[in-house]
């Protein structure tokens, strides 16, 4: 899924801006991006902030966790608890559209989002 070509790494915020095992929303190039600090696993994820179910800008405020044997990381929308894979963006409990995921990297205390030009 992740490609390295044509990606611009944009510094977005400090690691301390995103609560441990939670998320926050950042404005990136005019778009709302939900960034998740999965501290329990030492992983970072980023997705679109819009929940496709009822078109609410809310995913960053959702609870994260994992599901299944493989412990697939997921986020649950705070509105109606639709859950989406943080790896693939796929909706895990319904027939909603998938959500977009973004590459994230952390260097020092800076969080970067990998941006592809549309």
């Amino acid at each position: 899924m992740e490609t390295t070509t044509d990606i611009t790494w944009l510094p977005v915020c400090k690691t301390t801006d995103i609560p441990a095992d939670g998320g926050a929303c950042a404005l990136v190039e005019g778009k709302q991006v939900a960034i998740f600090n999965f501290a329990r696993r030492g992983e970072w994820y980023a997705t679109q902030n819009l929940c496709p179910h009822k078109q609410q800008m809310a995913l960053a405020r959702g609870m994260i966790g994992s599901t299944g044997e493989a412990c697939e990381p997921k986020v649950a929308c705070p509105f109606h608890k639709r859950t989406f894979s943080l790896l693939t963006g796929e909706c895990l409990n319904g027939d909603e559209c998938s959500i977009r995921t973004y590459p994230v990297k952390v260097e020092g205390d800076n969080v970067y989002i990998g941006w592809e030009a549309d």
Binding site: D21, F38, G65, T67, C71, P73, K74, K81, T83
Partner: peptide
């Protein structure tokens, strides 16, 4: 919550067990 998950749970939790 983290201590509870470490002692009595498994995986990374979810939107049901957290609240």
């Amino acid at each position: 919550y983290d201590a509870a998950l470490d002692h009595f749970g498994k995986g990374d939790g979810c939107e049901t067990c957290k609240p």
